[in-house]
Write a protein that binds this DNA or RNA. Structure first.
Lengths: 225, 225
DNA sequence: GCCGGTATACCGTCATACAAGACAAAACGC
DNA sequence: GCGTTTTGTCTTGTATGACGGTATACCGGC
C-alpha cells in the first residue's frame, strides 16, 4: 500500500509532481520491484488520483529511466541489466572524474566545507538497515561537487544516472561488510582532502577509483543473482 | 503549418512517438522558435491528434530539454542561455573526449570505415542553406563513435545534449565562412586519422578541441544577439 | 499433453467537461 | 487622457467515460 495523495502534501503546485514523488519513492524503496508491472488503474485507485495524472507521472519517471514503457503492454519498473549498469557507471566515472577537476578550479572554501559536512552526514548513516538513506546522503555529496563545479547540466544528468542504479546501490550497501563501509568513507575523506589541497590530479584519480569500486560491487551483485 | 500525422507514417506502433517526431522536427527546423508558446489545443488541431497525445508528446520533449513547462502557463520552446550552452558543451567535451579513448580501445576496423563514410557524407553537405542537414550528418558521425565505444547510455545522453543546442549549431553554420567550414571538416579528418593509427591520446585531444571550438562559435552567436 | 479459440483485462487514444489561473480588453474613476 | 479595476475569454490541469485493439489467460478439443 502506498500513501494516498493529499492536496497539501508538498510545496509543488501541481498534482502531477506530487504523484511523481510518491511513485518514485515507492520504486526506490522497492515497494515496486524491478520488472514489476505498474497497471495504471491500480495505481490510480491506490493513490486516489485519476488515471490521467498517473499516466503523466509515469511519463516523467520513464524520462528518468526508472520505468519503461512497452507498447501495448504497459509500464514496468526498469530492470537494470549488467551491461547497462556497467555503462551507467562508466559514464558516471567519466563525468564525475572530470567534474572533480572543475571543482578544484572553481569551488570556494565554503563549498569544500559543505562537502565535508555532507560526507560526515553520510558517515553518520552507517547501518545496513538504512541503505536508501545512506545512498541519498552520498548523492548529496556528489551534488555538492557538481554544483561547486558550476555545471548544473552535469549535475542533473548524473543525478538521473544515480537514480537508475539506486536499486543496486541499496542492495550492495545492505550486504556490505563493516570493513567495506569503512573503506568507502575513508575514500571519501581522502577525496575531500585532495580538494582541500587543491590537488586536481589526485581528486580526479580518487573520484574515478571511488566510482569504479562502486561499479565492481554492483557487478558482483548482478552476476551472482 | 506542420504536417498532419497519419497512421502509417513511421514504423513505430504508437501515435505518441510519431507525434514526438513531428514536434521535435518542427522545433529543430525552427518552425517553432525559441521562447514560443506551444498551445496544446492549437497543436492538436494542426496535427490532427487529440490533446492527450499532444500532452504526452510534449512531456517527452520536455524530458529531452527541448521544451519547458511553466506551471499554469503552458509549454514553451526552450530558450538556451549562454551559461546553459556553455555547460552543455562542457559536458559534451567531457563525454566525447573520454569516449574517443574508449573508441580507440574497442572499435573494429569496420567501425572506423563507417566513421570515415559518415564524415565524407557530412562534408558533402557543405552549403550554408542546409545547415540542419549538415548538423544531422555531424550527429551521425558522433553517434558512430559512441556506438563503437560500446556505451549506449553515453550515446543517448550526448544525443539529447546535441539536440538542445541544435538551434545554435544551425545558426553558426549558416553564418560560417567557407574557410571555417573547411577547417571543421579538416579537424574531423584528422580525428579519423588518429583513430586509424589507434592513437588514443591524440584522438581524445582532437575531439576535445573540436567541441571546444564549436562551443566558442556558439558563445559568439549568443553574446552578439 | 499440445493446440486453437474464446474471454478477459488493460493499454492507447479520444472526446468532453470543468475549475482555477493568466492574459487582454473593456469599463470605469479621477 | 491615464491609471486602475472589472470583466470576459482562453488555456491549462485534472477528471471521467468510452471504445477499439492487443496481449494474456483460460478452456475445450484433439
Amino acid at each position: 500500500m502506498i500513501g494516498t495523495i493529499s492536496w497539501t502534501m508538498a510545496d509543488t503546485p501541481t498534482l502531477r509532481d506530487r504523484t511523481v514523488e510518491v511513485l518514485r519513492d515507492a520504486i526506490l524503496t522497492q515497494h515496486f520491484k524491478p520488472g514489476e508491472k505498474l497497471a495504471e488503474r491500480v495505481l490510480a485507485d491506490e493513490t486516489g488520483v485519476s488515471r490521467t495524472s498517473i499516466r503523466e507521472a509515469l511519463s516523467q519517471l520513464q524520462a528518468e529511466g526508472l520505468v519503461q514503457r512497452v507498447p501495448g503492454k504497459g509500464m514496468f519498473v526498469t530492470r537494470v541489466t549488467a551491461e547497462e549498469a556497467q555503462q551507467i557507471y562508466e559514464v558516471r566515472a567519466i563525468i564525475e572524474a572530470a567534474t572533480a577537476r572543475l571543482f578544484v578550479a572553481r569551488a570556494s572554501d565554503a563549498d569544500i566545507d559543505a562537502l565535508e559536512v555532507a560526507v560526515n552526514a553520510a558517515e553518520a548513516v552507517n547501518e545496513p538497515t538504512s541503505a536508501l538513506l545512506h545512498a541519498q546522503r552520498l548523492d548529496a555529496v556528489s551534488d555538492i561537487v557538481m554544483s561547486g563545479a558550476g555545471n548544473d547540466v552535469a549535475r542533473q544528468m548524473v543525478a538521473v544516472l544515480r537514480a537508475r542504479v539506486t536499486y543496486l546501490r541499496t542492495i550492495t550497501a545492505r550486504s556490505a561488510s563493516r570493513e567495506r563501509r569503512g573503506e568507502t568513507m575513508a575514500m571519501l575523506h581522502r577525496i575531500v582532502d585532495a580538494y582541500r589541497r587543491r590537488d586536481a590530479d589526485l581528486a580526479e584519480q580518487l573520484t574515478r577509483a571511488y566510482i569504479e569500486r562502486s561499479a565492481k560491487f554492483a557487478q558482483d551483485v548482478l552476476h551472482e543473482a
